[in-house]
Write a protein that binds this DNA or RNA. Structure first.
Lengths: 257, 257
DNA sequence: ACCTGAACACCGTTCAAGT
DNA sequence: ACCTGAACACCGTTCAAGT
C-alpha cells in the first residue's frame, strides 16, 4: 500500500529475467542516442503537453537516469531547439505551382499544418528562436520566393518576418476567454445560441455591443479558415505593395507621416 | 560569512526602530493590497524580466512573506492575468481620425507600443489569454470599427483575430538566430558587413544564398518599421477583401478550392 | 481577516563517484 | 565514454498556526 507498486514490479521483472535472455532485454532498451532522446521528447510533448516535458519525465520515459540525458544534450534549451528542428523537418519545402504568392501560400500553409500537429511545441516556439538546418531551409525558401518575386532585400526581410510572426503567433494565441472560468455546463456543442456568458463577466453587455454581436464567431476562428483568412489578407497586401513599388505609387493605407 | 547578511540586517533594523516612530515605519510599508501587488509585479517584470517574476521575489520586493500574496490573489496565473489587464489599460482606445483602416491602424499601433514598453509581459501574453475589462474594451473597439466598416460578423471575428495574432506574435518572436550562439565580438554596431557568421553555422552558405543575400536586414526588422510593414499589408488585404465582398468578386489570391 | 514559518512535491543542473 | 545517486538552489502552493 505504502510502497510504489510499479517500481517494485519493475525491479522484480528485471532481477528475475536478466540472464535468461539478455539480448531480449537489450531489445527492449535501445541505446541512448541524441536522435532517440529528441524523438522521444517530441512525442512526449505531443502526447502530454508542454508542461509534462520535464528532463526527469523524459528520462523516466527512456528508462534512464535524469543525468544520462546530459551526456547527449547540453541543457533543456538545446533539447527544445533540437525538437523544434525535428518538427520543422516535416514542413514541405518542395516547389509548388502558381505564382510567387501561391507558392508562398503553400509553404506557409504547410508550416501551419506542422505546427497544428505539434501544438505543445508550437507554444514555446517563439521565446528564443534558434534555427537549425530545417528552419534555415524554410527561411531560405521563403526569402528566395520573395526575392525572385521582386522584393528588395529589406522588404523581403520585412515580409518574411511578417508571415513568420503571423503564423507562429497564431499557434501561440490560446482561446480567447475572460477572467471568469468558462462555464463547463454546455453539454451539446460550441454553436450555442447564448455564448455571452463567457464574455459578459468582466464588463456589462451594454458596454460591449460589438463583442456581443460577434461573440459566437470568435471561438470558431481557430477551427474554421481563420488562419487562411489572415494569411490571404497578408499576401494580398504584399502583392499590392510589390505592384505599388513597381509603379512608383506608395501603397501605404494612409501616408500620414 | 555563512549567514545571510541582508536578512540579518533587516531583522536588526526592524527590532531597533520599531516603537520609536511606528507611523514612519507604516509609511515605508504601505498596506498590502491587490492593486499594489499587481503594480509591483508589473514593475518587477519590466525591470528584471519575466524569469525574475517569482511569487517569492515579488513577496520580498513587497517586504512580506510569500504566503501573504495568496490572501489577495488566487494563484500566479491570476496574478499574470491582472498584470496583463493593468498593462492593457495604457492602450489608447479613444477615437481617432481617418477612415476605419486608419483608426484601426492607430489602435493597433498603440497596442504595439504598449507591448513594446512591457516586453517581459508581452512574452507570456499569448499562452492563456484571459481578458479583463481593459482587454475587452480594446476588443470591443476593434470589432466595432470592423463592423461599422461593413465586415460581416464572421469576417470581423477573423480580421480581429488576425490583427491580434500578428501584433502579439510580433512581440513573442525573439531575435532570429541559429543554434550557434551569436558572436559577441562585434564591437561597433549592427550594420556589420559580414553578418553571416551567425546564419552560416547550421548550413553551408552555398545552400542558403537568399538568406545570405538578405542577412544583414533580418536583424533590423524589429527595430525599424518592421511591425508597421506587416500591419499595413494586413490592413491593405482587409480593405481589398471588403471591397471585393461589396463587388461580389472573390478576393482570394488563388481560389484553388 | 490577514499574515507567518515550515513543509511538500516538484524543477534544472552540478558534482563526485562508479563502470 | 557513458551512466548513476546524492545534493544544491530553486519553484508554486498547502497547511496549521499565530494575531
Amino acid at each position: 500500500m505504502s510502497q510504489q507498486p510499479s517500481a517494485a514490479r519493475a525491479r522484480f521483472d528485471r532481477s528475475t529475467w536478466v540472464g535468461v535472455d539478455p539480448s531480449e532485454d537489450e531489445q527492449r532498451r535501445p541505446p541512448l542516442t541524441r536522435p532517440r532522446i529528441v524523438r522521444t521528447a517530441l512525442r512526449l510533448a505531443d502526447d502530454r503537453g508542454l508542461v509534462a516535458l520535464t528532463m526527469r519525465a523524459l528520462a523516466s520515459e527512456l528508462e534512464v537516469s535524469p543525468m544520462a540525458l546530459y551526456n547527449h544534450v547540453r541543457d533543456k534549451d538545446e533539447l527544445v531547439d533540437l525538437m523544434v528542428d525535428l518538427m520543422l523537418g516535416e514542413v514541405d519545402c518542395s516547389a509548388s505551382q502558381g505564382d510567387w504568392a501561391a507558392q508562398l501560400r503553400a509553404l506557409v500553409c504547410s508550416y501551419h499544418q506542422v505546427l497544428s500537429a505539434h501544438r505543445g511545441l508550437a507554444r514555446i516556439y517563439s521565446v528564443g528562436v534558434r534555427l537549425g538546418p530545417h528552419g534555415l531551409l524554410i527561411m531560405e525558401r521563403t526569402l528566395g520566393l520573395l526575392l525572385r518575386a521582386g522584393f528588395s532585400a529589406p522588404d523581403a526581410a520585412n515580409a518574411f518576418y511578417a508571415l513568420y510572426t503571423y503564423t507562429v503567433g497564431f499557434h501561440q494565441m490560446g482561446r480567447i476567454a475572460t477572467l471568469d472560468a468558462p462555464t463547463p455546463d454546455s453539454g451539446t456543442d460550441d454553436q450555442l445560441p447564448r455564448p455571452m456568458a463567457k464574455y459578459g463577466s468582466a464588463l456589462p453587455p451594454e458596454q460591449i455591443p460589438s463583442v456581443v454581436a460577434v461573440g459566437a464567431h470568435l471561438d470558431g476562428v481557430r477551427r474554421k479558415g481563420g488562419f487562411e483568412y489572415g494569411l490571404d489578407a497578408l499576401l494580398t497586401g504584399l502583392r499590392v505593395k510589390l505592384a505599388g513599388d513597381h509603379d512608383g505609387v506608395p501603397s501605404r493605407p494612409h501616408s500620414s507621416r
